[in-house]
Write a protein that binds this DNA or RNA. Structure first.
Lengths: 104, 104
DNA sequence: AAACATTTTTCACTTAAAGTGAAAAATTCG
DNA sequence: CGAATTTTTCACTTTAAGTGAAAAATGTTT
């Protein structure tokens, strides 16, 4: 599961994997914290998306950070997240940086 | 008010100045987010303490960050806060860094 | 020391963000 | 088409952050 780089996964599967409700992922999307690829209305999460979400969950659950703080850090293009971020997540982070630019 | 560097101020005055309840400052102290000087039981906030608190308030109120996030950032000794921090606050920040070390 | 004011502490309450449950509406796909 | 899946909406729960009120402790003045 989540093996080949190019695959993508439906929301229920990702939510289960992360141990959250799928509504939570919709909720995150409202803040552009994650923006899955869409074919029609249906969402598809890339492997990168999933790694990014894992990292976000760690910051929130393990460390007690809130959504807003993560968005602030993204906006500041700061090393806090990037620096201590597992390598592969960085690209994804930069992705959301761009997507966040013209939003809110 | 808050002019000479060496002066210190009682909690009510500082709370008024910051526009918060003094209980909030007690609350912050539980997390070592600010640790005023004490003579006996009475607390005295230095000018540095006050500048630091102003900065914390900005992060929380204007930006929507939460207490936990600020503590995480302090613990990580990160540039996020330090970098964009008004110059004089930096020393104070380092102060709290030390105080936080052997706590929680 | 007594009496009064100030500060600290505790308890219970309010508020707002984060997250969830359930069900209706919309969409996908065999 | 028709069943199954996905999306959306609404209202609810939970928790961190903050506050009000009052009791307890401390400080201060006479």
């Amino acid at each position: 599961m989540f093996n080949s780089e190019d695959k993508s996964y439906p929301i229920e599967l990702v939510a289960d994997f992360l141990g959250v409700n799928s509504r939570t992922l919709y909720y995150y999307e409202k803040f552009s914290l994650v923006v899955p690829f869409r074919r029609g209305r249906k969402r598809y999460y890339s492997k990168q998306d999933i790694r990014w979400l894992e990292y976000v969950r760690e910051l929130m659950y393990d460390q007690g950070m809130n959504l807003r703080s993560i968005i602030v850090l993204i906006r500041r293009r700061d090393d806090v997240i990037l620096g201590k971020c597992p390598g592969e997540v960085v690209d994804c982070f930069k992705n959301y940086l761009m997507k966040l630019k013209n939003h809110n």
